[in-house]
Design a binder for these strands. Structure first.
Lengths: 111, 111
DNA sequence: ATAGTTTATCGCAAATATACGATTAGAATT
DNA sequence: AATTCTAATCGTATATTTGCGATAAACTAT
């Protein structure tokens, strides 16, 4: 429960890492694209977004490092897709996070 | 569906803003504290976390600016709590986001 | 071999984020 | 009025992020 004098807790670090990966509109857009298609090359993403190829590539790198996506080489292209295991872990972390609030338990959700 | 040459979509910007607010372990920890208690003063947070008061205050400011939390002045203290409306909006944005993946629809969730 | 296609990386500039000591501001108490 | 308590803000240093043009790297096709 309590913190050591120097560290945060494992789940908080993990969740912050996923949140950081999603903390830019371009990366949200990229992940949405990947989630909605079962195939997606870098070039298609570049066409879809209002930013340069180098910038897209950089965002893809960050998403890969977060673990949320992965890239399969299919010369001369690279096919990107969701990384299922980490995706599910992130989903669970966030779901539990939102649920934990007393609001989620006591308030009627208007959906 | 498609982007203008300059802009991202509204929901992506909103969601990125919430994600950014949660992109640091200290802020996750703070929000968890607020979500689990129905009363929380800044001082209690400072005691709980391994960072200085000035830093906590800065994180609180960012969380307030994201809309996820709010502070009620109760002289000489300030009582922080979740901001219900934005909290629910964020919850919905993220829930839909994770759900939208084909993985969530086809894979068996081990919970 | 040469040329073309696709994506990553480099180098740089500007902007943001993180952390903290010191100070300030607002209110209550003495 | 002076003191105490709580929290915000200032100032500063350091690190990270964002964006892009230019270039490189890997592979295909001619």
């Amino acid at each position: 429960m309590a913190y050591t004098s120097t560290d945060y807790m494992e789940d908080e670090i993990r969740m912050a890492r996923y949140a950081k990966a999603l903390s830019h509109p371009a990366r949200i857009a990229i992940v949405k694209l990947l989630a909605s298609m079962d195939t997606c090359f870098c070039g298609e993403i570049v066409e879809e977004l209002p930013i340069a190829q180098a910038t897209v590539s950089q965002h893809l790198k960050e998403l890969k490092e977060s673990g949320l996506i992965q890239g399969c080489i299919e010369p001369p292209k690279i096919r990107y897709c969701i990384e299922p295991e980490n995706w599910n872990q992130a989903q669970k972390l966030f779901t539990d996070f939102w649920e934990q609030s007393y609001l989620s338990k006591t308030e009627t959700q208007k959906v």
